[in-house]
């Protein structure tokens, strides 16, 4: 526990930067191959109706979360939004799996070559890392708040 507290800053920064690599990579890959990504969304039984708007909303959200994760002020918000987004993706994959194995993955770059099940494992490991990041950031913020209060006394 002491080790975790001592290295909290380093763990938070590494977690945030790993998430930045993941989201930026996914977003840029989607935008580079936009037509293919849009077609992949069209193949989905649930979201094909919204494929036009989603094909822009998803990469823009990923870039927005990456910016929040890099910034100092919105780090916690970025971590929470990335956990929500990863949760949505994982739920979507689980629902899709109950439909068919042949629906193409609308994920960016080499991630689409992962199988659906490997993709769930991949997402879950990032969600685990993300949760640790959120807990440590909250812990750090509450300590800073307490220190501020004691200084005011």
């Amino acid at each position: 526990m002491k080790w975790l507290q001592k290295h909290a800053n380093l763990i938070i920064e590494i977690t945030c930067n790993l998430l930045v690599v993941l989201f930026l990579y996914a977003a840029i890959s989607k935008l580079l191959d936009y037509q293919h990504f849009k077609w992949q969304l069209n193949q989905s039984p649930f979201i094909s109706t919204y494929s036009d708007s989603l094909s822009w909303i998803i990469p823009i959200t990923e870039i927005g979360i990456s910016i929040a994760l890099i910034s100092k002020e919105f780090k916690l918000e970025g971590l929470i939004s990335s956990l929500i987004l990863l949760g949505c993706f994982t739920t979507y994959i689980i629902i899709i799996l109950s439909y068919s194995n042949h629906i193409p993955c609308s994920c960016g770059g080499v991630l689409s070559s992962l199988g659906w099940k490997k993709h769930i494992l991949f997402n879950l490991s990032f969600m685990f890392l993300n949760t640790i990041g959120i807990l440590l950031t909250k812990h750090k913020k509450s300590i800073a708040r307490l220190q501020g209060k004691t200084e005011n006394l």
Binding site: E13, V20, F23, Y25, S29, L32, D33, K72, G108
Partner: peptide, 25 residues
């Protein structure tokens, strides 16, 4: 290093990887 170099490396890695795997794809 944590505040400037690490994020810069992360961005470069993400951009580089996406262009590199685009060719592989």
């Amino acid at each position: 290093f944590l505040k400037i170099v690490l994020p810069a490396l992360a961005i470069m890695l993400a951009v580089g990887l996406s262009f590199a795997t685009e060719t592989l794809n």
